[in-house]
Design a protein around this nucleic acid. Structure first.
Length: 438
RNA sequence: GCCCUGGUAGUGUAGCGGCCUAUCAUGAAGCCCUGUCGAGGCUUCGACUCGGGUUCAAAUCCCGACCAGGGCGCCA
C-alpha cells in the first residue's frame, strides 16, 4: 500500500467522500454482525470506523477483519463514504487490509473494557494504559504546559540552561541523595539545581531557568511524592526584593493556565476536565497569619511548627471558599529554611515563600543570601562544612549581585490543574520507593 | 520509617470456617445475526499471592514473607 492518501482520524472528514484513503492504527474493536462488520481503528487523535458489508467486501477480507485480535496494528485502504449512521459522519468501505503487527491475546489490560483497572496494573502495562485517550491527554497537556512555560520565560529574557545531574554534593545535606558510582569516586544524583543556578548569578546571565529532573531519595510514600520528578527552576539577579521573583511566578503560571485552557481544549475534553484560571495577583499571607488561621480551626500548632499536610489542606479549603486556588505563604521561620535563604534581620523569619495550589505546596523560593560572610555563617549554623562547598562559595567572593529564585514541581502543578488524584498520573514511568520497572 | 486497609480467572469483583465442583461483570474461543457505536442472543474457557500454623474441615481464622492502595512525617 504505497502512494495512497494516508489519513489520520483527525485529517479525514466527510469531505473526503468517494476518495480512496489509507488509515493506520490500532484495532480498538471489531463488531461482527454477521452480514456486516465494523472495525474501529484508533490512532493518536481518535477513531475511524471501517464498515464491511458482506456484499461489498470480498469474503477473505471479511474473515480477516472479523478475525483480527484487538489492539493489533493495521493499515486499511478503502473508500470514504459519508454516512449519517456513523457519529463521525463518514465511514470507510475497505478494499485491502494489512496487519502490521498482530497483538497477542488476552491483553494484559483492556483499553476500552467496561471494567476498571487498578493503578498497579496500569503502570505495569503503561504502554497499554497510554492507549487510552484520557491517559494520554495528561501527557499531551504536560507537554503543552512546558511549551507555554518556555514561551513565557523567553519573552521575559530568561536564558534556558542545563546544569549537571551528576554532582559531588547536595544542596541540603546528604539524607535525600541517591548515591552513585562515578568511576573511582562517589557521586550523587542532583536533588536540585540550586547551587548551580545561584552560581550563574555571578556571570552576567542574570535571568536563567531550567527544566530538568530532580532526584530525591526520601522515604515518602504519598500521592504527591516520587523519587524522580521534573523541576522548573529559575533564578534572577539584581532583585529589589523577593516580590520580583513572585511576579515572574505569577506571570508564568498565569500564562500556562490561560494557554492550557485555550489551546488544550481537545485534551481537556477527553478527560472531562475544565481548567480554571486563577486571578492575579495571588493573595499573600505570612507564615504567622497561616499559623493563626490553622489554629482557629482547632489544630494545635506551635510557633515554628510546619503547617503540616493537614494545615495546608485546611488553608486550601478556606482559600477555596474565598475563591482562590493559588496563594502565597511568605516569611517562613529562617530555621525551617535552607542555608541559602536570606534571614529577615531582627526577626526569626526569612525572605522566603511557598506557592500553594489547591491545598498543596507547589513551589518554593525566596531571596538568597548573597553576602559571603553571612552565607558562610548560615552554613555553619545549619551544620554544613563550608569547605565542602568551596566551588559554590567562590562566586560569592568575587562579586555576587543580590538575587532570588524558585523551584516548582511540574507534575504537582499539572496534577492539581487537572484535579488528578496522584502525581504518578502525570509521569510516564514513575519512580518511587517501590517502583523501578518499567 | 511508622499507622491503616487489602491481595480470588487476562482485567475488575462477590464470598470471610462446612451450603465453594467459588459469584457476577469484562475478556477470550465458537455459533447466530446487514447498521453496530457500552451492540444483542446462545455455548464454552479461565482464579483463591507464597510459606508455616489452628481445625474433623481454611479462599475464609492466626503468624511470617512478598506485593499493592491510602494516611503521617519530609518535601516540589
Amino acid at each position: 500500500m504505497q502512494n495512497d492518501r494516508v489519513k489520520s482520524s483527525r485529517t479525514i472528514t466527510a469531505q473526503d467522500s468517494d476518495m480512496e484513503v489509507t488509515v493506520k492504527g490500532w484495532v480498538q474493536e471489531v463488531r461482527n454482525l454477521g452480514g456486516i462488520s465494523f472495525l474501529i481503528i484508533r490512532d493518536r487523535y481518535g477513531t475511524v470506523q471501517v464498515t464491511a458489508p458482506k456484499k461489498k467486501v470480498p469474503p477473505e477480507l471479511m474473515s480477516a477483519i472479523s478475525g483480527i485480535p484487538r489492539e493489533s496494528v493495521v493499515e486499511v485502504k478503502g473508500m470514504v463514504k459519508a454516512s449519517s449512521q456513523v457519529k463521525s459522519g463518514y465511514e470507510i468501505i475497505p478494499s485491502e487490509m494489512n496487519v502490521l503487527s498482530m497483538a497477542q491475546s488476552p491483553l494484559p489490560m483492556g483499553v476500552v473494557d467496561k471494567v476498571s483497572v487498578e493503578m498497579d496494573t496500569r503502570f505495569n502495562h503503561r504502554f497499554m494504559d497510554l492507549r487510552k485517550p484520557e491517559t494520554r491527554a495528561v501527557i499531551e497537556i504536560k507537554s503543552l504546559a512546558l511549551e507555554l512555560l518556555g514561551e513565557y520565560m523567553r519573552s521575559q529574557d530568561f536564558v534556558e540552561m542545563f546544569t549537571p545531574k551528576i554532582v559531588a554534593s547536595g544542596a541540603e545535606g546528604g539524607a535525600s541523595l541517591f548515591e552513585i558510582k562515578y568511576f573511582d569516586k562517589k557521586a550523587y544524583l542532583a536533588q536540585s539545581p540550586q547551587l548551580y543556578k545561584q552560581m550563574m548569578m555571578a556571570t552576567g546571565l542574570d535571568r536563567v531557568y531550567e527544566i530538568g529532573p530532580a532526584f530525591r531519595a526520601e522515604l515518602s510514600d504519598t500521592v504527591r511524592h516520587v523519587s524522580e520528578f521534573i523541576s522548573f527552576d529559575a533564578e534572577i539577579a539584581f532583585i529589589e526584593s523577593q516580590r520580583d521573583v513572585m511576579d515572574v511566578m505569577e506571570g508564568v503560571t498565569h500564562h500556562i493556565f490561560k494557554g492550557v485552557a485555550e489551546r488544550g481544549k481537545e485534551h481537556l475534553e477527553k478527560m472531562g476536565v475544565e481548567v480554571k484560571v486563577p486571578r492575579l495577583p495571588y493573595p499573600i499571607m505570612t507564615y504567622s497569619d497561616a499559623l493563626e488561621l490553622v489554629r482557629e480551626t482547632g489544630l494545635t500548632l506551635k510557633e515554628g511548627d510546619d503547617l503540616g499536610t493537614e494545615g495546608e489542606k485546611v488553608i486550601g479549603d478556606i482559600m477555596k471558599e474565598k475563591g482562590f486556588d493559588m496563594y502565597w505563604f511568605v516569611e517562613y521561620p529562617e530555621d525551617a529554611k535552607p542555608f541559602y535563604i536570606m534571614e529577615k534581620d531582627g526577626t526569626p523569619y526569612s525572605y522566603s515563600f511557598d506557592l500553594d495550589y489547591k491545598g498543596q505546596e507547589m513551589a518554593s523560593g525566596g531571596q538568597r543570601e548573597h553576602r559571603y560572610e553571612r552565607l558562610v555563617q548560615r552554613m555553619v549554623k545549619k551544620g554544613l562544612d563550608p569547605k565542602d562547598f568551596e566551588f559554590y562559595l567562590n562566586p560569592f567572593a568575587y562579586g555576587m549581585p543580590p538575587h532570588g529564585g524558585f523551584g516548582l514541581g511540574i507534575e504537582r502543578f499539572v496534577v492539581k490543574m487537572l484535579d488528578l488524584p496522584n502525581i504518578r498520573e502525570a509521569i510516564l514511568f514513575p519512580r518511587d520507593r517501590n517502583r523501578l520497572v518499567p
